[in-house]
Amino acid sequence: MAIFYIYILLLFMIIAAIIAVETKYLLGAVICIGAVGFGASIMFLFLRAPDIAITQIVVEVLGLIILIRACISRELTFISGPREFFGVVVSVVIIFVIFLAGIRVLETLPDFGTAIFAEAPEAASQTYIAEGLQKTGAANIVASVILDFRAYDTLGEATVLFTAIIGATVIMRRKPKKLLEDE
């Protein structure tokens, strides 16, 4: 039954993404991208990933606020038509070829629902599941991975996030000349 819901949600996300791509209205496109994101968070619940579902909802709300800040009270939001015709045709053909090649690659994967990691007994995932509680004392294995086994990843994530926010702050800064004159 879970796989039925997964198909329904995937179709919902694809339809919402197509509307977001093709609509003229920027605000409508932003709302549709919100629909894709919330559909993804429900999908994560069906895929047994509750931590990611919670994070996705929080990030989605913040991202919608940022996107709406970009589109609200802008007069010239109607930009119709694609780029030059020849470039569009070449791009679509290349994307279609990439799609066909990707489908062929996906055929080599095992069927959906078979645990690939369980076939290798020495895989890191098996160790985390079997010994995560014993070694770290965290009942949530995902938390034990991001905060204990792979804590350097989380440190790197914090660095990247900090750098991105510094960049956004520098770009959005108002009146830099006035600040320079004050000093």
Binding site: S125, Y128, I129, V145, E157
Partner: peptide, 12 residues
């Protein structure tokens, strides 16, 4: 149990 490793990396 499902695989916790991709979940941790996707969270990041």
């Amino acid at each position: 149990s499902v695989d916790p490793l991709p979940q941790a990396l996707v969270l990041t």
